[in-house]
Design a protein around this nucleic acid. Structure first.
Length: 104
DNA sequence: CGAGTGACCGCAA
DNA sequence: ATTGCGGCCACTC
């Protein structure tokens, strides 16, 4: 079950993120078991399953990601389609839209 | 097997 | 206030 399947854990969490909700890399890493593995989450995001809603994953400032397909530009577009309000490459009311997994 | 990279985070000057 | 540096983890070449 949880033999350092950091990758599966992160993918599972991201896949469970509800719509209109966002999570930070640090939070996901912490929930996965490694509070300082935010970078690893980013790496998984790039080489992980592209079907997962990585668009709901943002950095600690609620800002957009750097390497998202299409750049911040594309990320912002998708976020707005998800129902988010993006302002200056940052999610508005990000603190209120922040979400934590149930199984935690 | 070893080294480098990265969609990050936190602190210091 | 802004800029720069180091450090943690996993993945790829």
């Amino acid at each position: 079950m949880n033999d350092s399947n950091f990758r599966e854990k992160v993918e599972a969490i991201v896949a469970q993120i509800p719509q209109s909700r966002v999570m930070t890399y640090g939070d996901i890493a912490a929930v996965a078991g490694y509070a300082y593995a935010a970078r690893a989450v980013g790496g998984i995001a790039h080489f992980g399953d592209p079907n997962l809603p990585w668009q709901r994953v943002v950095n600690r400032f609620g800002g957009l990601a750097s390497g998202y397909p299409g750049g911040k530009r594309g990320h912002q577009e998708v976020l707005e389609l998800e129902g988010f309000e993006v302002k200056d490459f940052k999610v508005v009311n990000f603190a209120e839209k922040r979400w934590l997994p149930d199984f935690l």
